[in-house]
Design a protein around this nucleic acid. Structure first.
Length: 256
DNA sequence: ATGACTCGCAACGCGAGA
């Protein structure tokens, strides 16, 4: 079962890219981030025509996450527990063929000297709590999404350029590492030493110069890691016309 | 040239993204 994650930076602006990715890569599950639209305006028919079920958690203008799946999506949960009053749509979770899958759009947190940074850290604390709960289920879990975290210096083209940024702050990295230490595997880093990025800025020719960063991650519980057969980053979508600034990352799990 | 961004919006410049 192929599970992918992609920050599309507006599902409406990216609809041609999204549809061609679903046709070409044909993932069983695709977690989307940054829909930038309300649930009612999600282009459901186009996606359903390709054989996908859809669960969204959108909002106007900003954020918004979704899970697309060829198989039924059960027991859907929107928002992180403890975040009931938060109007920012950044989390959705559901079960697909016994695999608990979350689509995550973690707050960026910049600039760090504003309230945005503590918001990021407290959001991560709630994610850590939820991730701990999910481990007690003793089932395959895939926490997929845009974490807005550069885990290590090797995950960006120029560590100096990112000093002082919310994506590399010790407080952000330490919380990401707590997810790993409790038992989740960073699927890409755990299974390849390749240097590869998932995001390239629209500005300054970042894509052409490969000035990227690795901030989209698939975190797998032990039960999911045991079933993992392949992991990859699909770079093609980033090089196309009117692309997202992110590109999809995916894993293949051996699920009967 | 050493380089040039892209979304959404009761828009026509601004906030946000990373």
């Amino acid at each position: 079962m192929k599970i992918a994650s992609w920050n599309v930076n507006s599902v409406k602006a990216r609809l041609p890219r999204l549809l061609e990715y679903l046709k070409e890569a044909s993932p069983d599950v695709l977690c989307l981030q940054e829909l930038k639209t309300v649930d009612e305006a999600f282009p459901r028919e186009d996606v359903e025509e390709l054989g996908y079920n859809i669960e969204t958690h959108g909002q106007k203008t900003y954020n918004g996450v979704a899970i697309l799946s060829k198989h039924p999506i059960e027991d859907v949960m929107r928002r992180l527990p403890g975040n009931d009053d938060d109007e920012q749509a950044r989390y959705i979770e559901g079960t697909i063929k016994g695999v608990r899958v979350a689509s995550i759009y973690l707050p960026n947190g910049n600039p760090v000297d504003t309230e945005k940074f503590p918001y990021k850290l407290s959001w991560m604390d709630l994610l850590i709590k939820r991730a701990e709960e999910l481990l007690t289920w003793e089932e395959p879990v895939v926490l997929a999404g845009d974490y807005n975290i550069i885990p290590q210096d090797e995950d960006c083209y120029d560590p100096k350029a990112w000093e002082g940024d919310a994506l590399t702050q010790p407080e952000s990295r330490n919380r990401f590492r707590r997810l790993l230490n409790m038992g989740y595997a960073d699927a890409y880093r755990a299974f390849t030493r390749n240097v590869n990025y998932t995001y390239w800025d629209y500005q300054r020719g970042a894509w052409q110069k490969d000035h990227g960063i690795r901030i989209d991650h698939l975190l797998l519980s032990g039960e999911a890691t045991d079933r993992m057969t392949e992991v990859g980053i699909d770079k093609e979508p980033r090089g196309r016309e009117k692309p997202s600034d992110h590109t999809p990352i995916w894993v293949d799990l051996d699920i009967s």
